[in-house]
Amino acid sequence: MPEITYLQAISDALWEEMERDENVFLLGEDIGAYGGAFKVTKGFQERFGPKRVLDMPMAESAIVGAAIGSALMGMRPVAEMQFADFISCAFDLLVNFAATNHYRWGSPVPIVVRAPAGGGLRAGPFHSQNPEAWFAHVPGLKVVAPATSYDAKGLLKAAIRDDNPVIYFENKYLYRHVKGEVPEDDYMVPIGIADVKREGNDLTVITYGAMVQESLAAAETLADEGVEVEVVDVRTLKPLDEETILNSARKTGKIAIVHEAYRSYGAGGELAALIYEDAFEWLDGPLVRVTAPDTPVPYSPTLEDAFRPNAEKIVEALRDLATY
């Protein structure tokens, strides 16, 4: 199997889906000749033409609105937010229109909104956020956040073929920092299925996105200290694969939840509640969260390093938990 970057995996998924289904088209800012701010769609306009790779005016609500409308007419739009942070400008269309449509009058809205998220790149408060929880709260939306090249490609294909609105959080830090094997044949990673990225009997880390790599690195350190950490990558935040999460929680009884997003009301709270509700008797210690604090994402390196969770901070939390 060829090794490709996370970014290439996303690009390949889009390309193959556009080859497969002529109803798939892309819309976003600077995605055509320019190939997108991160070059995910470089070369797409040459291959698929300007009508399937639409350069849009700078107007996220118009972009998402247009995606919804064309999806209602049977097309399969994939909208790109230049940065996940700008998805807030389309919030209304997503949470009120796309999310509720099927429940209200039965017509599906098969859109995908790609949202390049995450920090660690000194990009400041408005080009670094992780707004997945804003959307995972909303009934009717699906929310995915892949951590590897394999999952990035497979989840994007699944998202495009899904009949529901899917918000696809791709992590900018992983774009070029992560490489992995990806099959050449068509495959999908089903939405709603978590993946145990590393097995272990002593502790469980439940995480997703960029924090999967950091958690795996932390698990290596703990392994050297004789503690075997299981790393569960939830991959899909909504709908959540409760079974995989609960199985791991019941197996180890000691759980850390790690995410890059702000702490309060983040995905960690939901994951913790799930475990307390359904795996309480198996717990051998308090749930621990390793997250960003409740501040905007700061720019300066000294502040951002203190802000963003990493392997070192995860190791610390895991060591405490191991000795509990």
Binding site: R122, P296, P298, Y299, S300, P301, T302
Partner: peptide
Amino acid sequence: LGKVTGTSRGRDSNMHG
């Protein structure tokens, strides 16, 4: 330069903030 003496005290970047 992301310094604490900047207008945003290192919290925001370039012309932002």
